[in-house]
């Protein structure tokens, strides 16, 4: 099977870049397949499963909505999020954890900042006080 250059991008990362033999993506009226030499087209992708055939192996990925630009030389998919299945459970779990941690940390980081700031302020006061003291009584 001949191959084409496939790029899958999200604002956060380049998910896939390389040559692929086939791409199947979901559209409003069903699955849509792309092989090398497909006619140039702009298509909308709805939330669903992407299938990518890379060197004879078909891999699935979970995708958000986005769009596909099919040009003679290359195919570009731009979407918000896309994940391999093996990353999903971990990522979901991680996201949930991150959210909880985030909520905590936001509170914590604000506190830490307040702490650091007051530490800094205290240090400054000490500095000022020692300077005053040493200028008032130069000899001990």
């Amino acid at each position: 099977m001949s191959s084409f250059h496939l790029t899958i991008l999200t604002p956060e990362r380049a998910f896939f870049e390389g040559s692929a033999q086939a791409l199947v993506f979901p559209t409003v009226d069903g699955l849509y397949g792309v092989l090398a030499g497909h006619q140039p087209e702009l298509a909308i992708l709805v939330e669903g499963q992407l299938s990518i055939n890379i060197d004879g192996v078909t891999r699935q990925a979970a995708a958000s909505d986005g769009f596909v630009t099919i040009l003679p030389e290359s195919v570009t998919v731009i979407l918000q999020t896309v994940e391999w299945p093996e990353d999903i459970d971990r990522r979901r779990a991680e996201e949930a954890r991150r959210e909880a941690e985030e909520a905590l940390r936001q509170r914590q980081s604000q506190q830490e900042f307040v702490l650091a700031r007051s530490m800094l302020a205290r240090a400054m006061v000490r500095l000022r006080v020692t300077r005053c003291a040493s200028s008032h009584e130069p000899q001990g």
């Binding site: 559209t27 006619q39 140039p40 087209e41 702009l42 298509a43 040009l71």
Partner: peptide, 12 residues
């Protein structure tokens, strides 16, 4: 974008 002579199709 470098488009082919016949332009692009749109879906939908």
């Amino acid at each position: 974008i470098e488009t082919p002579v016949h332009g692009l199709m749109y879906h939908p």
